[in-house]
Design a protein around this nucleic acid. Structure first.
Lengths: 203, 203
DNA sequence: AGGTATTTGGACTTGCAAGTCCAAAATCGT
DNA sequence: ACGATTTTGGACTTGCAAGTCCAAATACCT
């Protein structure tokens, strides 16, 4: 049995935890901060998350990851315009989040390195999910002739995800925003290189 | 005034801190662990690092970064064979370190996200250093005709570093070793794409 | 309205890890 | 070998943050 009010409080706590986690990493996540931000009390937190900090962190990670799943897998990637649009969208979001020092993709890297195996496994699943999705898209493009029959789908998928993650980290470290954009631009250039017999927009 | 023995102890503490930092991230670095590993005492640690944990962490990061500077900038990158050899070397080291769960490049990402601005600045400098070095190499290749005159040196450099970093993180998260290798392989394929009029090993 | 179940506030306990302090031991220069 | 200096060991203090507990307040149902 749980009332609407309780549910709302729980969600409020969870959201705050996600934000703090993205902003400062797991190391800096303190329950006191969560309480302060959400104007709640110890009693509430442990009432809604009996497992304490571990449970909250775990839940927050899962929630953040849910958001990112969509981010990483656009609806359609059948033409070069689709790819370009997707990359543009990623860069735009990246720049926006970087302003608040709250880039979610970069935060993934931090969580990967946090040391907790459970945590790492959750992150691993996101990457694997992205990888699977991307491979499907690429395979589809290969089948439809947009990519060459021998296009190395697995390696291309690894490349794209690596660039996404690495570019975000690189930009965060150097306080810039052009590394991710540049790297993605070149990635697209490579993709065009393995174009097959049915060029999408050739005159 | 400092004796040889003191110097040795200080170094021992520093090395241990680097290892622990790479293995578990800054969050998990505890002075007690350092003492245990190095069989030293609180007195020694604070004697050699009066600034305490902050000073030690800072010093350890700087030291680790020194190691990595060499890692990221091979002596020569004038032929495709050089590039291939370099990438192979990186992959080999990566696989080796991954076995001990101690990949240093991946650890960089963790430190980037740790939240401490000082720390991030140190990491930023490594990346910038790599970037500069790589651009020089690429520009040299362009001048010598190995790359096309209009090869986008900046973007290629961003791409390479992004892949290095992102691939390492990706492999760590998914407990695999093929993402970095695959991504680097495709990166090399792209580089060959912008080959200029003086192919290095064409029959 | 009244009784029950849920939700809340916050004082209290506990454990860990950083940092302090100083006396004992080792080392060095002469 | 001896005095001065550096180095070491470890007990002690302190502060923070997690987790416990329970009485008061609120919400829900009939």
């Amino acid at each position: 049995m749980t009332t609407a009010k309780g549910e709302a409080t729980k969600r409020r706590i969870l959201e705050a935890a996600v934000d703090l986690l993205v902003a400062g990493g797991a190391a800096r996540l303190s329950l006191d901060d969560v309480l302060r931000v959400t104007r709640t009390s110890k009693g509430q937190l442990f009432y809604h998350f009996p497992g304490g900090k571990d449970e909250l962190r775990q839940a927050a990670t899962e929630r953040q990851v849910q958001r990112l799943i969509g981010y990483g897998t656009p609806a359609r990637l059948n033409t070069w315009e689709d790819w370009e649009a997707w990359f543009d969208q990623i860069v735009a979001l990246h720049i926006h989040q970087t302003q608040d020092d709250a880039c979610e993709v970069a935060a993934l890297a931090g969580r990967t390195l946090d040391g907790d195996p459970e945590e790492r496994a959750v992150i691993g699943r996101v990457f694997t999910h992205w990888d699977t999705e991307l491979r499907e898209r690429l395979t589809g493009m290969r089948d439809s002739g947009l990519l060459l029959p021998d296009a190395p789908v697995e390696e291309l998928s690894s490349l794209i995800i690596s660039v996404l993650e690495g570019g975000a980290v690189l930009d965060k470290a150097t306080a810039s925003t052009h590394h991710l954009a540049g790297a993605l631009h070149q990635t697209l250039a490579l993709l065009r290189t393995v174009t097959g017999g049915t060029p999408p927009a050739a005159p």
